[in-house]
Design a protein around this nucleic acid. Structure first.
Lengths: 148, 148
DNA sequence: GCACATCGTAAGCACATGCATATCAATGAA
DNA sequence: TTCATTGATATGCATGTGCTTACGATGTGC
């Protein structure tokens, strides 16, 4: 039984994710956003989803738990919910200009902090890392599940 | 305000971590281990820690919540706890041969599955990704916190 | 028209987590 | 010697999460 040559991928990524989330927290607080609020603001501009349930699925949230998040964002004028004329069950979500601005300023602050950390890596490694992460992050979730 | 050229690092890493944890779950179950049990088994062979509290900190666990995990592992003969003669408050932890074997077979299965996913990346990217992740994962947690 | 599915919404339950508190035993410093 | 600190342990509380159930409104297919 040979010694493994690397740590588990999960063992590196999961704690790293925790550290990054912890790092985001003060930035989000300074922008008066919770994590899920920010996730929704970000997803609404990058994911072409039609239904709230699809949005929840896309961002890994629970569709029932996301309702109060959407309520809050709507109440603050950061997003709108309009019935879809093609299917009156559906509420179409859209960012307001205010929502877009808040998303952008928050994202800028978050990414600035991330760049500070990423600069600890060589530039070429940085580019590859981001490219590879993007590829992995875009994989369907069940890609990772073990085969039976 | 220019469009960002990349997703947030956290926005890629955190869901990826979730997917990897979900993928691990059936493998751990097949080896009769919980996630924290496996984390402890793995950490005991790679982290030179003396106290249980230090182990908990090293693996991002709560020192009080880790006690029942250690109890269970000890009861199953996977690890031993002996008083440290140099400081009788401390319980020195060590894997048994059985614990080492279980850790190894589990890790092999987990990494085999991870390799299957990693092979979706070009080989050179794979190497850089793992190297970069290792670097980032080894950073002290407060490296990531924003500067005041 | 009817049975079934879907969407949004609310709420319940079990469990995990982060943090705090408390206790006992042991250690180290003043 | 006294007191503060440390290590292990147990437990409580608040919060978050995953999943489930249920409901009303709407849509689809037969």
């Amino acid at each position: 039984m040979a010694e493994p040559t690397r740590p588990d991928l999960a063992a590196m990524i999961v704690p790293l994710g925790r550290s990054l989330m912890a790092a985001e927290q003060p930035i989000l607080a300074a922008h008066d956003l919770t994590m899920w609020e920010y996730v929704v603001l970000t997803a609404l501009s990058t994911e072409p989803v039609r239904t709230q349930a699809a949005l929840a699925d896309a961002v890994g949230a629970d569709k029932t738990r996301i309702i109060p998040v959407l309520d809050g964002l709507q109440r603050r004028g950061l997003l709108t919910r309009e019935p879809d004329p093609a299917d009156r069950r559906v509420r179409l979500l859209a960012l307001t200009p205010q929502g877009r601005r808040l998303r952008d300023t928050t994202r800028t602050a978050i990414q600035r902090n991330e760049e500070r950390v990423l600069r600890l890596l060589p530039a070429a490694d940085r580019r590859v890392l981001l490219r590879a992460l993007r590829t992995l992050a875009d994989l369907p979730r069940d890609t990772f599940l073990p085969e039976t």
